[in-house]
Simulated scan of single mutants.
Amino acid sequence: MRVKLKRWLREGVVLLLIAAAAMLVMDQFRKPTLPSAFVSTPLQTQDGQDVDLAAMSQERPLLVYVWATWCGVCRYTTPSVAKIAQEGGNVVSVALRSGDDETLSTWLARKHYALPTINDAQGQLAKSWQVQVTPTLVIVSKGEVKSVTTGFTSGWGMKLRLWWAGI
C-alpha cells in the first residue's frame, strides 16, 4: 500500500509539473504584443471618467483586466477582480464586445460588480492592443507594462502579480 501511495504521489507531482509547463507555454503564445503606446492610450469609463494608465500606475501597480460578459473563463476571474477593486485595489477593466453601455451597465449591476469599466463595444481597443484571448490581465507599474497573462488566474495570483510589480 505504501509503495502504491508513493508512486501515485510521484505521478501526481509529475502530472502537475507537466500541466504547469504546458500552461506557461500556452500563455506565452496567447499573450498579446502590446503596442509601445499602450499606457498612453486615451480611455474613458462608462461613467465618463478619463483614464490615464500611466498616471494610475505611478503610486502603485495597476491591474488592467480585459474581459467579456460572454467569456466562460471570465465567470471565474471577474469576481476576483471585483473583490480586489472592492478592497481598494488599483483596477480598471475593459469589457470586450459585451454590448452597448446600457446593456453592460445592467449586466454589471445584476452581478453587483463595482469596477471602473471601459466599454470596448466594437472591439477596436482590443484589436489595437492585439488582445485575442479573454480574460487578459496586464500589470502596469510606473507607466511600464510589467506582466501580461491570459486565461484563468486566481485572486491570489492577481494579488501576487500586483505585489511583485510593486517591489
Rank of each mutant, 00 (worst) to 15 (best):
T103M: 11
K31P: 00
P116G: 02
Q44S: 10
L43K: 13
N119V: 03
R75A: 01
G48S: 01
D47K: 11
W156D: 07
A114Y: 07
D120F: 02
L125W: 07
V133W: 13
I18Q: 09
T136Y: 09
P61D: 03
I139H: 04
I118S: 09
L162A: 05
T33V: 13
T103W: 08
V51D: 02
T117V: 13
G12E: 06
S57W: 10
R75S: 01
A68R: 15
D52G: 05
S57D: 03
K31D: 02
E11M: 13
V92M: 12
S141R: 15
S80F: 09
V81T: 11
R75Y: 02
L62H: 02
N119P: 00
M26N: 10
A121N: 10
L16F: 09
G151Y: 08
S128G: 03
T69L: 12
K6H: 03
V94S: 08
V13T: 11
Q124N: 12
K146W: 04
L17A: 11
A95L: 06
Q46H: 04
M56T: 04
A114G: 09
L137Q: 14
A82C: 07
D50S: 14
Q132R: 15
M56N: 09
L5I: 13
Q132K: 15
G99F: 04
L15D: 00
Q58Y: 02
W67T: 04
T69F: 10
R75Q: 12
Q130C: 02
V92G: 11
V131I: 13
A22P: 06
G123L: 13
W107T: 08
W70M: 10
L125V: 01
Q49V: 00
Q124R: 14
S93D: 01
T153R: 15
E59K: 14
S128K: 15
A21W: 05
S128M: 13
S98Y: 11
D52F: 04
K146Y: 00
L108D: 02
V138D: 02
A95P: 05
K159G: 01
S93Y: 03
S105V: 01
F38T: 12
P42M: 10
S128C: 09
Q86L: 08
G143H: 12
E59V: 04
